[in-house]
Design a protein around this nucleic acid. Sequence first.
DNA 1: ATCGACATAATTGTCAACAATATCGTTATC
DNA 2: GATAACGATATTGTTGACAATTATGTCGAT
Lengths: 225, 225
Amino acid sequence: MDDIAKALPRKGPASPEIADWIRDQIRTSRFVPGQRLVEVDIIRKTGGSRFKVREALQRLAAEGLVEIEENRGASVREASMSEIRQLYRSRAALESICAGDFARDASPAEKAELQAIAEKMESCLEDGAPERFGSLNAQWHAMIMRVTGNTVIESIVRRLNTPVHHLLFETFYRGNRMQDAVNDHRLILSAIMEGDVEGAERAMRQHVENGLQFLASLDKALHRE
Amino acid sequence: MDDIAKALPRKGPASPEIADWIRDQIRTSRFVPGQRLVEVDIIRKTGGSRFKVREALQRLAAEGLVEIEENRGASVREASMSEIRQLYRSRAALESICAGDFARDASPAEKAELQAIAEKMESCLEDGAPERFGSLNAQWHAMIMRVTGNTVIESIVRRLNTPVHHLLFETFYRGNRMQDAVNDHRLILSAIMEGDVEGAERAMRQHVENGLQFLASLDKALHRE
DNA sequence: ATCGACATAATTGTCAACAATATCGTTATC
DNA sequence: GATAACGATATTGTTGACAATTATGTCGAT
C-alpha cells in the first residue's frame, strides 16, 4: 500500500533550468557583458549543485553566450558589432526562407493566427508595453518558422539571437522601434496573405536588415553617449 | 638547480580534445547513429577522467551531435532526412552569401589560392583519394568564408555540417560525386574570378543543393538496399 | 606615495567514492 | 511455454573534499 505518494525527493533545479535562469539574467541585463559568473554565486541564487552549475555553464559556452577561460571561469561574452552584423545577415537569409515557405504553405487559419498576434502587437503601441511587445514579437517570428516545419532553422535563429537578446529588449524601449516593426510586419503579412512568396521573402529580409540598422545606431549612441 | 625540466605532469587529455576525439569517431562511422556512448568506454579509450568525459559529452549535446537522456546517458543522434534538408537549405543560403562576398572583396592573391586548392582536388580525381579530397573540400569551403571575415557564419556552417559529416565522407566514395563537385567548383570559381557577385552566389547555392540531392539519393539507396 | 615580494583568501579544476537508476538474466508461477 | 516478480550487474547522477591556480591584501624598501 503506497499511499506515501512518492514523497517527492525535492531535488534542486536541473542544469537546463539553471542555464535558462542564467540566459534570462543576461537577457534582462542583470548580468552584463564582461561580468564574471562566479560559480558559488549562481549556486546560492539558484539552489543548484556546483556540478549542475558547471554543466549549465558548459552548455552556455557551447552556445557562445558565455566564455570560459582556463582557471578564470566563465564570463558573459560581449558580441562585437562585426559579429552582430553577421548574425543579422544570417537571420535575414534564414528567416526570409521561412517567410516564403509560410506564404506558400500555411493554411488560411494559420495565416489568420499570425495576423491576430500582429494585431495584439499593434495594441501595445498605444499603452506602450515594450516587454509584452518583445514577447509577442518573439512569438510572431517563431510561428512563421515553426508552422512550416522549419524547426531546425528556428533553433538556429534562436541561438543567433541570444547574444543580442538584451539589446533587442532595449531597442523596444527606444525611439519608434516598435512602430517601425509594426509597419514591417504589415508589409510581410500582406505579402503572406496574397501568397506572394518572393514578396514575403523580400519583406522579411528588409525587416531584419532594418533591425540591424536600428541596433547599429543604438550601439553608436551607447558608446559615444 | 632545476634540471628536472618541470617533470611534465602528464595529465590526461582535456575535455575539448575528448570532444574532438568523439566527433572524429562519429565522422569516420566508428560510432554510428543510435549507438550509446558509455562513459567508461570513452575513459578507457581516451585516458581522460570521467569528469572530463562528461564535460565533453555535455558540449557535444549542446552542439546537437549527441543526445543525453536522463539516467540513460549519451547516444549518437540520428539526423532525419527532413532535418538534413533544412541544414542544406541553411547552408545554401549562408554559403552563397560568403561566395558573393568573396567574389567582391577577396584579393587576387586570395582568389589564386582558392584556385590552387581546387586544382589539388582535381588531382585527387585520378588517383581517387576520397579522404584527401574531403579534407581539401573542407578547406576550400572554409577559405571562402574566412577570408571575407565571415567567421561567425563559418562557425555556424561547421556546426550545421557535423551531424552529416559521416555521410559527406561517405558520398565521396560513391558514384561520381567527386567529379560533380569539381565541376561545381569550376563554375563557382569562374564567377569569382570575374568578380561576378550574383553569379557566385547562384553557383554556390546550386552546388550545395546538388550535394543535398546526392545525399538524398544515397539515403534512399542505404535504406532500401 | 609607489612599487614589488610575500602571505592570504577566493575561485576554479580534478578526482574518487557513494547513491540512484536502468538493464539484463533468473526463477517461480500459472 | 509465456509472463511477472525478483535480484544481480552495469551505468549514470551527485556530492563533497582536496589540489591547483588566480586574485587580493599587507608590509617593507626606496
